[in-house]
Structure formats: C-alpha cells, structure tokens
Write a protein that binds this DNA or RNA. Structure first.
Length: 322
DNA sequence: ATGAGGACCTGCTCGC
DNA sequence: TGCGAGCAGGTCCTCA
C-alpha cells in the first residue's frame, strides 16, 4: 500500500534507472491503467515515444517524470544514468544542448497495488502488467504492474500549482506534503479551524495535506494521542503541530527503512518499504495491547475502511465528527 | 461550497 | 472441496 515514503523510494529508484534515457515506445496492455489520460491509450503512447526523461519529481503520493524533447540534455551534470548497467549506455550522442524546460510529464499514481518495475526487457511478463515503456538504449525497461488497477498513468501538461511550482495538471490542487519545505503549517492549521469534520478525514484530504494515507494517519494519530473523529475546529495549535510532527516522524522512519534496501533495487523498484512488518503501533493491531498502556487496540469502521486507535490514549471526543 | 458516503477493483482469507 | 462473504484502501464522483 504505497503512501508517501514508498512512493519516494520508487521515485529515487526511477531517478537512478531512467533519468536521462530516451523512451523508445510505450505499450498499454490494459486501457484502465491510462483511463485518466483523456485522449486515450494511443495518444498516451504517442506522446511518450522519443521523449527524454528528466529527473523524477513527487508530491504526496503522486510522482512524475518530466518529459523533454527528443535529443534534449537531461539536466544531469554527471551523466549518472549511463552508469546504471553496462547495457544502458545511452545511444544518443552526448553533444551539448540548450537546457529545455519541460512542458509535459508522465504522471503516475500507484493507487493501492501499483508497482513500477525496472528490469531486463526480455524477462517474463507479469500477469498484471498494465503498461510497458522501452528505451532507445535497449537497456532495462520500465513496467507498470497493478493488480487492483486503482493506480494509473497519464501524460499531462505542467501547470502552476497552489504550492507555487509547476506540476502536472491533475496534481495542481494537491497541497504540499509535510516533508516538503513548502508545506505551510499556518495554512494547514487555518484550514482545520475552518473545516467542520474529523481530524482523520482532514489528514486524508490531499488538498489540505498530501501524502498521508490510512495507515500513516492512524499511526500519526496514535503518536499524538488524538482520536480520529476529533472535530478539527476544536483543535489547538499545539495539537495540530503534534499530529503533523508525528506524521513526519512515521513517514521519515518508513523512508529510512525503505531507503536502506535501496541499493539492491535494480529489478525491484516497487515501493516495498518493509516498514509495516515491524514498526506499526496502531494500524492493523486490533485487540493487541497498546504498546504505551496495554489497552487492547480497537478497530472502528470509518469511510468504508478501518481506523485503529487506543481507547485509553485516544479517547473518543464527546462530539465526534466523521 | 462543503461534508459525507459510495464506487471502483481483484486476490486473499475465513467460515460453513 | 467449494463457494460466498468480508476485507484491503486512494481517489473520484454523487448527493444532500
């Protein structure tokens, strides 16, 4: 279940394996994977062929590969893409070119089960392979594999975002994530006071704060001792800061774990952080003792999914909001 | 505009 | 052994 840390690990893997390379072809094996590309699969593939991939970017759970015109310089000073493996030596001549500002990007959202895998072009095709990109150097290809098809890829124009940078159009309304420098804590707190909803719903609202999913929301709330149905308008500035800091902590920890196995990610740029197996304090621990107080963790239904919390550390507010 | 709930999707697990 | 129910949840869509 990729949330921000897992997506960031994938982004780093993509930076290592595809930045600076030229797309030869894009093959859409399941139209649903590109359903948000309004002009359809053929246009999607057409826009990718021949483009040079610039350094991958990310905001929250979205990531994107800026696309440069064919033959453009990739913006890398060290030509690191060429050292990925012997078979990925770029075929293009390395003549200097004017830096070009990308106007489009390949945008990816992994959804629930999406993976971006880099590997030898002739390896076996996974059952849930949805999209495949090949590169002009004949080196490792890039595969979008997604069992549940909640994820998607599309090519979009880069437009100004509410954060102030240029991002793919579908990301323009997304707030910065709490690990970004640009994250506006004052604006987040003001939004909490304005909203008439519960804190967990607010944490999952990507227009207020991006990158937080169900798992890290529960973990951040457990750490900050806040109940998920706490009305946001009653929260103090200190409580808001607490839950933000907790979110940063859990996501940074997960990123740290995911990052440690990063060097071995040649064929497995897949967003598995390994974090879930060890460090979760609330999520998925129904009836297990709270590691702070020993009270059994409870599971509530919320938004058609689960919320885990400690009944003692996170008492339900008298006025709950969902 | 805002808040709340459902739809989408497939594989796995559980109970009968 | 078979099979249906339940569960997993990010985002978009609809409705009040």
């Amino acid at each position: 279940m990729p949330e921000l840390p897992e997506v960031e690990v994938v982004r780093r893997g993509l930076d290592r394996w595809v930045t600076g390379r030229t797309v030869a072809s894009a093959e859409v094996l399941h139209p649903r994977a590109v359903r948000r590309h309004e002009e359809g699969p053929a246009d999607f593939a057409g826009r990718l062929a021949g483009r040079v991939v610039a350094q991958p970017r990310r905001r929250g759970k979205y990531m994107w590969l800026p696309l440069l015109p064919e033959g453009a310089a990739d913006g890398r000073a060290d030509g690191a893409a060429a050292e990925s493996t012997e078979s990925t030596e770029p075929a293009e001549p390395t003549k200097p070119a004017e830096p070009v500002e990308p106007t489009e990007a390949l945008l990816a959202h992994l959804g629930m089960s999406g993976q971006l895998l880099v590997g030898e072009p002739d390896r076996e095709r996974h059952k849930h392979l949805r999209v495949r990109l090949t590169f002009s150097d004949g080196g490792p290809d890039l595969r979008f594999v997604d069992q549940r098809t909640f994820g998607h890829l599309l090519v979009a124009d880069l437009v100004p975002s509410k954060v102030g940078d240029r991002v793919p159009a579908p990301v323009a309304h997304i707030a910065a994530d709490p690990l970004e420098e640009a994250f506006d804590e004052e604006a987040f707190f003001a939004a909490l006071k304005r909203r008439r909803t519960g804190i967990k719903r607010a944490l999952l609202d990507q227009s207020l704060i991006s990158g937080v999913g169900n798992i890290y929301a529960d973990e951040a709330l457990w750490r900050s001792r806040l109940h998920w149905a706490r009305p946001t308008e009653t929260m103090t500035r200190a409580e808001a800061s607490r839950v933000l800091e907790a979110a940063r902590e859990v996501m940074s920890a997960a990123l740290g774990v995911g990052g440690t196995s990063f060097d071995a990610m040649y064929v497995n740029v897949n967003g598995e952080s390994g974090y879930f197996e060890r460090s979760l304090e609330a999520y998925g621990r129904r009836d297990e003792p709270c590691t702070r107080c020993g009270t059994p963790i409870r599971r509530d239904e919320f938004m058609n999914r689960s919320s885990y919390s400690c009944p003692k550390c996170q008492p339900r507010p008298r006025r709950a909001r969902y």
